[in-house]
Nucleic acid binder design. Structure first.
Length: 873
RNA sequence: GCGAAAGUGGCGGAAUUGGUAGACGCGCAGGUCUCAGAAGCCUGUGGUCAUUAGACCAUGGGGGUUCGAUUCCCCCCUUUCGCACCA
């Protein structure tokens, strides 16, 4: 029988579903293992790149199952969000309908991939039964002062007609549609993630099993820096301006001050400036710029006309306004030290402001200030303070500590820790999201919706007309309500929540997904959480993972969970790319292809052009291999094996149609081999003459046959070596080499079968071991073969094989002989090798003698069991 | 600019603690089967020289440590990713 992947895969997918093999009783005892793939946004198009993510998770799931763990592997849907709403506007279909249809499609795709999820715990964030707890969580955060309404300059995407979180602005553009983001002053809802900045930063140190890269990205994003706040007085106005610096040791070099144009003291400072009108005009210009434009404009500033007193040199330093100082960070004001800060230096050059050197390289020469072309910075012991009064001569770290002491003694400032991280803006002026459960009453102000009135449901009868703002705001029945306090007329909040709120706690909901009485069952949550293995794309390194870590801590502080970190281990799989892109007509343009426009070749597509092209449109254009055709042609097992074999899973991988074929050939060989071994088992009468096959090397050597290996022993040994290697590689996520190891074993069994001098029982044992090891990668074919070999029950529920170290040991060992580090011969000796035997064998080796005869032996290096290096002169 | 990771055949990629570089697969070449093709199977496949045996060179470039370096150290080059006026 040929390998009929289609029949086999359908058969087993149904069998697993009918037996509900992946359903977990969360209350049952056992060695728990909670693994989770980041739940997808149901856009409807799952391609092989997504497949890699879920296949990887499924392979791990099956491996842990076979290892005897009670493994929980649930799945849900991150079902709120913009694309659904945009689709609604475009096609006139309700976002909910669109989303539900996509969920059904994607669910089918998961089944076709042979992925086992516990569907009894399925959840969708757009379901009122889910988002009511989103609202509940918001109310709890509000009670604790962690949700607040505030007016702030926010990022506004003119195309999506909504505000964005800082995390969603990439290079000054909207991360969804790439439109340049503009600043607007709006009143919005924020979550106070900055209260947790320290804990989020320090918590990273406890995450041993997270990729360093992700931790670093989060650390940079949180941007913790230690420094000092220092007050500078403005004598002419009798006021004080507070600055933040990380380098208080350079204060003797602070020759001017710069304030952000938005700084609240600007109006007073320029009140009597003759050029006031011009300065105000300039400020307005800067404020209207997007962040991107502001940066591209270069360093610009205006002199306020006022000076401040440097508290250490007592000099009057001019106060400037500068477009490079940001109101959102620190105090919106800096002391400028042009000698030791690149930005201050550029500004000083531009406006001819004095530059003073106050740090020198340790042991370096006195610099000539007129030679100075560039600011230089010394952050560690390599620098020493100079021209700095009491701290002169101190190395930088000591100088910083000392100057802060003096600042605090003189009460002109204090040590300060500041963060780059800003509060999480969660309001979105869009329909398809969780309504923020707040009510505005003319009498009582902002009033939270009482818990018992949850959920505040999204009305479904909403027209989608296009870009005229949030449709919810026009829905009279939704907007008009009564105040829970005074029972008078009131209006509902019409903004919805950022969908990252939905995904910040979903992992905890799975363990009691159907509980309608509470957000989750704390007892169950504490049994199953944190997630033991979390799997998802690197694109969530900051956004989702930071928000989830933050919300987890708030839940911890509320006493709802017993852990501060939600994900113990994190794995980020790489993307699958296919170089090229699909044109509007659906033709594939690959690297080096000629593009035809008006019947003329226009350009060859280079990688750079391609990336520019594709990133302009959509990232998903890079990933357009649809799995359906692939599964029809080769089967899901082939896709699974290929996807994990192609490259190390954390790396980006380039799709190759030929490579898929190779994976299919491998499975075909495994299939054919199985049939042959079965046939052999049926035809062999009685126990085969295994004794002949398992002669040891020593026996054969004794018979004068030379040291060859007993063929059956070789197969057994290879099998156990493979068990050992594959197990180790699974634990390290080295799926590509795990599969190559299985190919080696398969080749070895194939050779043994062809040679005909291996005991069929040995072949059967090795082969069924191969099936078990291969099962996580190719579940359907192995399940079928497992049954064909007469085994009861699913291979999935059988146990993972254990390697017997005694059976892995080679009977003879090859010792390599080097002369002056170069390979000059080799000898085989019985294992374990004895030094005398090895050396005797070397003496007897003619080839080696040839290289050392007549030369003086300087040294002999013996690496036990490996090699001998003879150094001659 | 700052930070991080990585450079190995035609390609994807292997190589416990420094110990036979190139496992496994793709591709390619030759063979076998066939009327023919596809698929399969077998053999070969880093480079140079050599009929062969074999020798030499080779893990981005240069230096160093070592009996021995893809692996450790220093300098340089390139690529990718992240952050980007955060004081």
């Amino acid at each position: 029988m040929p390998y009929e992947h289609k029949l086999i895969e359908e058969k087993w997918q149904n069998a697993w579903a009918d037996a509900k093999v992946a359903e977990v009783d969360v209350a049952a005892a056992g060695d728990k293992f909670y693994m989770l793939n980041m739940f997808p946004y149901p856009s409807g198009d799952l391609h092989v790149g997504h497949g890699r993510n879920y296949i990887l998770g499924d392979a791990l799931y099956r491996y842990f199952r076979m290892q005897g763990k009670v493994a929980l592997n649930p799945m849900g849907w991150d079902a709120f969000g913009l694309p659904a709403e945009n689709a609604a506007i475009k096609n006139g279909i309700h976002p909910g309908q669109w989303t539900r249809a996509n969920i059904e499609r994607e669910k089918k795709q998961f089944l076709r991939w042979g992925i086992l999820y516990d569907w009894s715990k399925e959840l969708a964030s757009c379901d009122p039964a889910y988002y009511r707890w989103n609202q509940w969580l918001f109310l709890k955060l509000y009670e604790r002062g962690l949700a607040y309404r505030g007016k702030a300059p926010v990022n506004w995407c003119p195309s999506d007609q909504t505000v964005l979180a800082n995390e969603q602005v990439i290079d000054g553009r909207c991360d969804r549609c790439s439109t340049i983001v503009v600043q607007r002053d709006l009143e919005q809802w924020f979550l106070k993630i900055t209260d947790y900045a320290d804990r989020l930063d320090f918590g990273l140190d406890t995450l041993e099993h997270w990729p360093e890269k992700v931790k670093l990205m989060q650390r940079n994003w949180i941007g913790r820096s230690v420094g000092a706040d220092v007050e500078f007085t403005v004598p002419s106005l009798g006021k004080v301006i507070r600055i933040f610096t990380t380098r208080p040791d350079t204060i003797y070099g602070a020759t001017f001050m710069v304030l952000a144009p938005e700084h609240p003291d600007v109006a007073t400072l320029i009140a009597d400036n003759p050029d006031r009108a011009e300065i105000e005009q300039w400020i307005t210009g800067v404020r209207n710029q997007s962040n991107l434009e502001r940066q591209e404009a270069g360093k610009e500033g205006r002199f306020t006309g006022k000076t401040a007193t440097n508290p250490f040199t007592n000099e009057q330093v001019p106060i400037w306004l500068g477009n490079f100082v940001l109101m959102q960070y620190g105090t919106g004001a800096i002391m400028a030290v042009p000698g030791h800060d690149q930005r201050d230096f550029e500004f000083a050059k531009q406006y001819n402001l004095p530059i003073r050197i106050v740090v020198m390289p340790a042991g370096g020469d006195e610099p000539k200030s007129d030679d100075l072309v560039e600011a230089f910075t010394f952050k560690d012991e390599s620098g020493v303070s100079v021209n700095s009064g009491p701290i002169s001569g101190l190395p930088v770290p000591k100088a910083i500590d000392r100057i802060i002491e003096i600042i605090e003694e003189r009460s002109i400032g204090k040590k300060m820790v500041r963060y780059r991280l800003r509060d999480w803006l969660i309001s979105r002026q869009r329909y398809w999201g969780t309504p923020i459960p707040m009510i505005y009453c003319d009498r009582d102000g902002i009033v939270p919706v009482p818990e018992e009135q949850l959920p505040v449901e999204l009305p479904l009868d909403v027209p989608f007309t296009g870009r005229e703002g949030n449709p919810l705001a026009k829905h009279e029945r939704f907007v008009n309500t009564t105040c829970p306090l005074c029972k008078g007329p009131a209006r509902r909040e019409t903004d919805t929540m950022d969908t990252f709120v939905d995904s910040s706690w979903y992992y905890a909901r799975f363990v009691s997904a159907n509980d309608s009485t509470k957000i989750f069952d704390s007892e169950l949550v504490n049994r199953w959480l944190p997630v033991d293995q979390y799997i998802g794309g690197i694109e969530h390194a900051i956004l989702h993972l930071l928000y989830a870590r933050f919300i987890c801590r708030t839940l911890y502080d509320m006493g709802l969970v017993g852990h501060e970190e939600p994900f113990t281990r994190l794995f980020n799989q790489g993307m699958i790319t296919k170089e090229g892109y699909r044109t509007a007509e659906g033709t594939w343009v690959g690297l080096g292809d000629v593009e035809w426009v008006d019947e003329k070749p226009v350009h060859r597509v280079t990688r750079k052009a391609l990336i520019a092209e594709t990133s302009k449109m959509s990232k998903s254009r890079l990933n357009v291999v649809p799995p359906d055709e692939l599964i029809d042609k080769y089967g899901a097992d082939t896709e699974r094996v290929y996807t994990l074999f192609i490259a190390p899973p954390e790396k980006e991988a380039e799709w190759s149609d030929d490579g898929v074929n190779g994976a299919h050939r491998f499975l075909n060989r495994v299939w054919n081999m199985g049939e042959q071994i079965l046939a052999l088992l049926y035809t062999s009468v009685g126990p085969p003459p295994s004794a002949a096959g398992v002669n040891t090397a020593r026996d054969q050597a004794a018979e004068g046959g030379g040291p060859t290996l007993g063929a059956s022993h070789a197969v057994i040994r290879k099998t156990h070596q493979t068990i050992d290697a594959v197990t180790r590689r699974f634990d390290r996520f080295e799926f590509n080499t795990a599969i190559s190891g299985l190919m080696e074993l398969s080749n070895a069994i194939g050779d043994a079968l062809a040679s005909g001098d291996v005991d069929p029982i040995v072949l059967r044992e090795s082969y069924t071991t191969l099936l078990k090891l291969l099962h996580p990668f190719a579940p359907h074919i192995t399940e079928e073969l497992w049954a064909m070999f007469g085994n009861e029950g699913f291979i999935l529920t059988s146990s993972w094989p254990k390697a017997d170290p005694a059976l892995m040991v080679e009977e003879v060992v090859t010792i390599v002989i080097q002369v002056n580090g170069k390979l000059r011969g080799q000898v085989e000796v019985p294992n374990p090798p004895e030094k005398d035997v090895v050396l005797a064998a070397i003496r007897a080796n003619a080839k080696v003698q040839q290289w050392i005869s007549g030369k003086e032996i300087v040294k002999e290096v013996y690496v036990p069991g490996k090699l001998v290096n003879i150094v001659v002169k």
